[in-house]
C-alpha cells in the first residue's frame, strides 16, 4: 500500500512543488495521477523513493515512512522512471539481469527474462540486442519488464506510456491489470486521460503542487472526466 500524508516538498529555491497532498493506493488498486507539466507528479514520486526528503508529511510504503527508513521502503517498490536510457552496451537481458539482482532477485534464468520480455511485447530479435540500438518505446518496455521482475508489493510508474505505440500501450494496460489482479498497489503519473479512464480505480488531478481533485472509478465514469480535467487545466475551476 502507498499512502501520502500531508506530503509537502518545498525546494531550496522556495518553490512549493508538492503542497500537503493526501492519497492512498491500496492493494490491487491502480491510482492515476494527472496533471500539467510541472504540476509536481515526478516530485511526489521522488519523495516516495526518497530521492529527496519531504519538507513536511510522510510518504508511506506498506506503512513504512520512506523518509525515515528509505531502504526498507524501497525494497517494496518497483519503479519505472520516465525516459530511462539504461546501459547501452548491455543487451536487454543483461540490463534486466543487473537490475533484477539489485532488486533482490538473483535467481532468474534466461527463460524467465525471455518470458517477461515477451509479456511486455518486445520482439524476439531484440532479446539479445544491445540497448543502444533500441527505440525509445523498446527501452520503455525493458523498464517495465525490470519493474515486473522485481515483483514488489507496490509499483510506481512515471509516465510509462510515453513513447509506446498504440498496440504497446494496449498491451501495457493488460499487463497493469494483471499486476493489479496479483494484488499490487500501482501508482502512475500520466498525461493520457483516455487510457487512465479505462483502467484506473482512482484518478487524482494535481495542479501547482496541490491535489485538486480525486475520484474513484464509479464516480468519474458517471461524469465527464475530460471536461473536468480540461477545466482545471484552463483555470476555470481551482
Amino acid at each position: 500500500m502507498l499512502e501520502a500524508k500531508d506530503l509537502t516538498m518545498r525546494y531550496e529555491d522556495g518553490h512549493l512543488a508538492v503542497d500537503h497532498i493526501n492519497f492512498q493506493v491500496k492493494k490491487g488498486e491502480i491510482f492515476c495521477m494527472l496533471g500539467a507539466n510541472g504540476a509536481g507528479k515526478t516530485t511526489t514520486i521522488n519523495l516516495f523513493l526518497n530521492f529527496i526528503d519531504p519538507t513536511e508529511g510522510q510518504p508511506l510504503v506498506d506503512n513504512v515512512d520512506s523518509s525515515k527508513d528509505p531502504l526498507e521502503a524501497k525494497g517494496n517498490i518497483a519503479f519505472v522512471s520516465e525516459n530511462v536510457m539504461l546501459y547501452s552496451n548491455f543487451t536487454a537481458r543483461q540490463n534486466m539481469d543487473y537490475f533484477a539482482k539489485l532488486g533482490g532477485k538473483p535467481d532468474y534464468t534466461r527463460d524467465d527474462y525471455y518470458a517477461v520480455m515477451r509479456r511486455v511485447g518486445l520482439q524476439e530479435e531484440a532479446f539479445e540486442g544491445k540497448l543502444k540500438n533500441f527505440s525509445k518505446g523498446m527501452r520503455q518496455k525493458i523498464g517495465i519488464a525490470i519493474a515486473i521482475l522485481k515483483d514488489a508489493n507496490n509499483i510506481i510508474l512515471d509516465e510509462p506510456t510515453s513513447g509506446l505505440d498504440p498496440k504497446a500501450a494496449a498491451e501495457f494496460a493488460t499487463i497493469l491489470n494483471e499486476l493489479k489482479e496479483q494484488g499490487k498497489a500501482i501508482f502512475m503519473s500520466t498525461h493520457d486521460i483516455f487510457r487512465a479512464k479505462t483502467f484506473a480505480d482512482r484518478v487524482g488531478i494535481m495542479k501547482e503542487g496541490r491535489m485538486v481533485m480525486q475520484r474513484s472509478s464509479q464516480e468519474f465514469l458517471a461524469e465527464d472526466l475530460e471536461k473536468i480535467y480540461l477545466d482545471y487545466m484552463l483555470g476555470k475551476i481551482d
Binding site: I77, F79, V84, M85, L102, K150
Partner: peptide, 13 residues
C-alpha cells in the same frame, strides 16, 4: 544522465 542511477537507487541498495 542515463537514468540508471535512479533506477539502481530505487532498490534496497
Amino acid at each position: 544522465e542515463r537514468g540508471t542511477l535512479k533506477l539502481a537507487l530505487a532498490n534496497r541498495v
